[in-house]
Design a protein around this nucleic acid. Structure first.
Lengths: 331, 331
DNA sequence: CTGAAAGCGCTAACAC
DNA sequence: GTGTTAGCGCTTTCAG
């Protein structure tokens, strides 16, 4: 292994000078800098990050904990985060909590015992508050993405669930739908609550009946909404919704699938809209109208905030960035 | 920060004794062990991994580089790898080369400058050979998953493309198909070559005409095979295949989609089979017969091999593990 | 502008 | 069974 001592010897300078050249710190004459740089290249020197970390207490590693690695939404968040991290000289560890609070806890413990400089994460729900305590105890900076937690003040990057929901509902309304069901994620997740709030508000504003059986709580994972759809279909015809507002992409897919299974032909007989894009799925008819969130930017921005926080370049007050979804009208 | 010195002082032992307790190394009396462990718990001591790495030259970090993070196949590989890594006390960095050789190179450079103990990766193609040179130069252990590279001897975990292909083709043949097209991945990827080889062999064995226009080379990414399908559809009716062997899941989806677009009704008029499962996609008709590879085991096993290699517990000779796909007959 | 000394937290090697 | 010493590769501090 080549160390700064090796290159110091060969360049006839002190190790300290080499260190300064590497870190661009202190003043160095152009001549010695050139000389040292040359030797560094010749000897293929690579700084030892462990030795650096030992002194600086920094690992240059960030962790991104998402709740569903199979969801393209989060996959894009990951890409954004990775790009920003690399750009800033950090490495990104990507992990998956599977919407499971305990897995989340486990990961946090790992991030503490083998430290990371900071964490970007989508909490599994409001109960993640306890896990955040862990992070605070160990002074690990973190940023929330996609989901917020009541009572937690921190940097966060969120979608505008309210306006997105309203636009989707408005689209349905314009198409003539009056019986609109909501198949939602868990009430413990902020995005679900906000989408529901927007739904209630919209229905009331338009004097539409809010049939309690039209509001169903499921989860955001693949296959999680199938029974919910079946429940809707089992309603007597007069109470059956003509449209479904699916809180995320996977719920929409469950809806399409289940409807087809029962010989419906969405979106013609029952219309569907949802949050997040359907990607590859959308190649199949029906093509849904969706609220596409800038997932890549979620990750990119959150990582930016985190790094600023780590490097003490951020204001002491927490920042909440709201990213607006884009409604893609189809069909 | 609590160090072994702090806990040594409080427990009235030497730092070395603490170190021994932590690492379960050397002989320690039950009494002192208990005493030290108690203090460790009380003081919430967490070992400093940087200091350890400085001595051991190990980072306890593994990198997994896959070629397409949006493909559920690789997503499952990642899960398997992560589980094994965590189980063995390693951390996993997940990265995505996007089927791009240069991104692969960049990642390898990162893995060298901020070192990892080893790398599991699916090469973007045969050209990755050059990148492997990089790894060898820096003595970084690695394991190949899913794809092999001619002339590269190393630990690897691969699928049985030959038998999987034959079983899929046989299924089509049994159903009466004689005009079978192959939409393949890039010839620079070993899996594509093997699938094609099996195809050629099968066709010849069954004295089926191999129409050169039935063999199309595309890529493994979403949307990559659309024009290939269109090409097939533009053939005169008598030359048009009645079935398509899609080399992976995304190609199959492209096929279904494109066929539907041109008012075909797969799999009734044109049948389709493919490698890897279609996951969520399969909720939509048509339900294809597919060769499901044990993706999770790909990752799990590869990581096992890698860790054994890192910890010098593996035989000097390279190991090649072949995992058999399971044919799921549907429709 | 450059260098020498000390020490980050830990463990290998050697005492006792 | 336990302790002492030295040093991993680097940077901070203080001298020159």
């Amino acid at each position: 292994m080549v160390t700064i001592y090796d290159i110091a010897k060969k360049a006839n300078v002190s190790p300290m000078t080499v260190s300064r050249v590497i870190n661009n710190s202190g003043n160095i004459s152009e001549k010695t800098r050139k000389k040292v740089e040359k030797v560094i290249r010749e000897m293929n020197y690579i700084p030892n990050s462990a030795a650096r970390s030992l002194i600086s207490k920094e690992t240059k590693i960030l962790a991104l904990l998402i709740t569903d690695i199979t969801n393209p939404f989060f996959t894009k968040v990951a890409r954004g985060a990775e790009d920003k991290a690399l750009e800033k000289g950090y490495r990104l560890i990507l992990s998956n909590s599977d919407e499971n609070l305990y897995k989340e806890t486990d990961y946090f413990k790992t991030f503490i015992s083998t430290p990371v400089d900071g964490i970007i994460f989508a909490p599994t729900g409001d109960e993640s508050k306890k896990n955040i305590q862990l992070l605070n105890d160990h002074q690990i900076p973190f940023v929330l993405v996609d989901r917020e937690i009541p009572g937690i003040q921190c940097d966060q990057v969120l979608g505008d669930n309210h306006s997105g929901s309203r636009q989707l509902l408005d689209y349905l309304y314009q198409k003539g739908h009056r019986k609109i069901a909501l198949i939602n994620g868990p009430a413990t997740v902020s995005t679900a609550r906000e989408r529901q709030k927007a739904y209630m508000e919209f229905m009331r504003e338009h004097s539409l009946v809010i049939h309690p059986e039209w509001i169903l709580e499921t989860n955001y994972k693949q296959g999680g909404a199938i029974t919910a759809v079946e429940t809707l279909l089992s309603l007597p015809n007069k109470d059956k919704p003509t449209a479904i507002f699916a809180a995320n992409n996977f719920i929409a897919i469950d809806a399409i699938n289940t409807l087809k299974k029962y010989n419906y032909d969405p979106p013609h007989d029952i219309d569907i809209v949802c949050f997040d894009d359907l990607e590859s799925y959308s190649w199949f008819p029906p093509f849904l109208t969706v609220a596409v969130q800038p997932a890549y930017d979620f990750g990119y921005t959150a990582t930016q905030l985190l790094i600023e926080r780590i490097e003490k370049k951020s204001p002491t007050t927490e920042r909440k960035v709201i990213l607006t979804p884009k409604i893609v009208y189809r069909n």
